[in-house]
Design a protein around this nucleic acid. Sequence first.
DNA 1: ATGCCTAAGCCCCTTAGA
Length: 262
Amino acid sequence: MTRIASFNINGIKARLPRLIEWLEETKPDIACLQEVKSQDEGFPADAFEKIGYGAIWHGQKSFNGVAILARDTQPEEVQRGLPHLVPEDAEDVQARYLEANVNGLRVATIYLPNGNPLPGPKFDYKLQWMKRLRAHAKSIWTEEVPTVLAGDYNVIPRPTDIWSDKAMLEDALRRPESIAAYRRMLGDGWTDALERHYPGGGIWTYWDFQSGAWQQDRGFRIDHLLLDPLAADRLIACGVDKEHRGREKPSDHAPTWIELSD
DNA sequence: ATGCCTAAGCCCCTTAGA
């Protein structure tokens, strides 16, 4: 059995005690992290090595940043950043994508752009980034290696993936363009693990820090694990470590995970 | 229409998040 988790930690320095605690309690074989918010030099690889995790990371000052941790092994990096579709994509220097081979699996950690405010360049960037992600995902598909694309997609796929049908309707996370781009990936054959196991929705992975969202369970589902058919055939369980959202100094996201048979 | 919270930077206020 292989357990793969995705966790938007919202600042690795501020969150290190919570992160170490979570790794030791839930023992994921692979952990995909987002919003590291640290330059490469500041990444606490030693702390992970001490508890048996190898790591690769792509850092950036203040914002973004992604990493892949693997228990008892070193992830083998295969891609850093998404390939360009048009020349302007070369201007993108944001650290949002990292991909590795780990124990015969292909795993990507994804921090998809938020896209607010809209309309505007940030929303355009989000949609272009999704186009690039879809194209690159197709190219992985052709390699026929079991693949998991895990991360913070900043997309609320269905009305049942948010606490209120009326909330966030004008937000980039719920705009039809964002949802359509996400649906196109599912149309290509990628399986949204949580959606498959909980078709009725009502599962959240994010609760705003503000306005007592956590206390009132006003959340939504934006962290997703997408599986190619080889990985989807092995899917035996998935869930959200919701309880970790209620601890001291938490991230605004909870970890999301799947288990694959061996 | 706005602030609500939180983190990081180089700083005690601004930017960004979702």
